[in-house]
Simulated assay, not measured.
Amino acid sequence: MGFCLCLLAVLIGGLWIYWGLKRRRFMKLKEKFFRQNGGLLLQQQLSDHKGSIEMIKIFTAEELKRATKNYDESMVLGQGSFGTVYEELC
Rank of each mutant, 00 (worst) to 15 (best):
G2A: 11
G2Q: 08
F3K: 06
F3M: 12
L5F: 07
L5M: 11
L5C: 07
L7A: 13
A9M: 12
A9Y: 06
I12H: 02
I12Y: 01
G13P: 02
G13Q: 04
G13T: 05
G14V: 04
L15D: 03
L15W: 08
W16K: 06
W16E: 02
W16P: 00
W16V: 03
W16F: 14
I17F: 12
I17P: 00
I17S: 00
Y18R: 06
W19K: 14
G20Y: 05
G20Q: 06
G20D: 01
L21P: 00
L21T: 08
K22V: 02
K22Q: 04
K22I: 04
R23D: 02
R23M: 01
R24G: 00
R24A: 07
R25W: 01
F26H: 09
F26N: 01
M27E: 13
K28A: 13
L29H: 10
L29C: 03
E31S: 03
E31I: 03
E31G: 01
E31Y: 11
F33E: 14
N37P: 03
G38T: 08
G39L: 09
G39A: 08
G39F: 02
L40R: 14
L41M: 07
L42F: 09
L42R: 10
Q44Y: 12
Q44P: 02
Q45R: 14
Q45E: 10
Q45A: 09
L46K: 05
D48L: 13
H49K: 13
H49P: 00
G51Y: 05
G51R: 02
G51H: 06
G51E: 01
S52C: 12
I53N: 12
E54W: 13
E54H: 11
M55C: 05
M55T: 15
M55Q: 14
K57A: 11
K57Y: 10
I58M: 13
F59Q: 13
T60H: 04
T60G: 07
A61Y: 10
A61M: 12
E62P: 01
E63P: 00
K65A: 15
K65L: 15
K65M: 15
K65Q: 15
R66S: 15
A67Q: 12
A67W: 01
T68L: 03
T68Y: 01
K69R: 15
K69M: 13
D72A: 08
D72C: 04
M75Q: 12
M75D: 10
V76M: 10
V76P: 00
V76R: 14
G78K: 02
G78M: 00
Q79R: 14
Q79W: 13
G80Q: 08
G80M: 08
F82W: 10
F82H: 12
G83N: 08
G83Y: 01
G83L: 02
G83V: 10
T84P: 01
V85M: 09
Y86C: 06
Y86M: 11
Y86D: 09
E88S: 06
L89K: 13
L89M: 11
L89H: 04
